[in-house]
């Protein structure tokens, strides 16, 4: 038993010895290997910096700083204060390579814009939202007189800081109000600057724009009870006009 074991070991040693005696074979058969692990870290798309907005009527121009590693950008428009996105219109839709765009045909309303950087299949987080109030037409209100109201002499005196007509106007996005005018109608006649004898409508310029007023003494109205229509017309810097009418009654 012992002898057989020794013989087996001896045989193994002999086999190694043959290899030792044959250098060519030995070198061909010798290999070593090793392995190790190495991390490869992917980057991350950055968040686009501060977004700038300019609104002009139904056109909204958005601009943002370039983001590192970005090959394009996507513009997102939300209804203000919600997570509801709107379909971004021409000019800012799809993947943009520039860092500015102008969306046209934006509906009236208050919107919020945000931009994300993209690179092929990667999209970065959205930038901070920036509000954009879009109004395609100017708005005008008449504070006094109130529509469908009836005024006595004393009530007329307390309507505006100075007796007469007053109100406000708001320009369309990106525009300004250049002029506020008024006309006054009584039946089929119009105010001509002195009385209601004009056969056609005449407009007179009011004071102010966003806060406008017209001094108009109650004594300008004929005695008795009469119904009048005040038309206030604002003209925007674009030339566009908006008119608001107010019907009222004066009893003196």
């Amino acid at each position: 038993m012992t002898i057989r074991t020794v013989q087996a070991v001896a045989a193994a040693g002999l086999a190694v010895g043959v290899l030792v005696c044959s250098p060519g074979i030995a070198r061909a058969g010798w290999t070593a290997a090793g392995r190790g692990t190495v991390p490869v870290a992917a980057g991350r798309m950055p968040v686009v910096g501060e977004v700038g907005i300019q609104v002009a009527a139904a056109k909204v121009t958005i601009a943002w700083p370039a983001a590192a590693h970005a090959t394009g950008y996507r513009v997102v428009r939300y209804a203000a204060g919600t997570s509801t996105t709107a379909v971004v219109g021409a000019g800012c839709s799809g993947v943009l390579t520039a860092t500015t765009c102008t969306e046209t045909g934006v509906p009236d309303g208050t919107w919020e814009y945000a931009v994300r950087a993209v690179r092929n299949s990667w999209s970065g987080a959205l930038s901070a939202r920036v509000p954009a109030a879009v109004a395609t037409t100017a708005a005008v209100t008449t504070t006094f007189p109130v529509d469908k109201a009836t005024y006595t002499t004393s009530a007329w005196a307390g309507g505006c800081p100075s007796p007469g007509f007053c109100g406000t106007s708001t320009p369309a996005s990106g525009q300004s109000i250049t002029k506020v005018e008024y006309s006054l109608q009584s039946g089929t006649k119009f105010w001509n600057g002195n009385n209601f004898n004009a056969g056609s409508e005449r407009y007179f310029t009011a004071s102010g724009t966003t806060n406008w007023s017209v001094p108009f003494a109650v004594t300008n109205f004929p005695t008795g009870k009469g119904t009048y229509t005040l038309s206030v017309r604002v003209t925007a810097s674009s030339g566009q006009t908006t008119t608001r009418t107010t019907d009222f009654t004066v009893e003196r």
Binding site: A32, A41, A42, N120
Partner: peptide
């Protein structure tokens, strides 16, 4: 460029290196 998943942003890949010698 076109196939890498968006979820790979910020990921760390582990690579195994193998070397052989004589």
């Amino acid at each position: 460029a076109k196939s890498v998943a968006d979820a790979c942003q910020g990921a760390t890949f582990t690579l195994r290196l193998n070397a052989t010698a004589r």
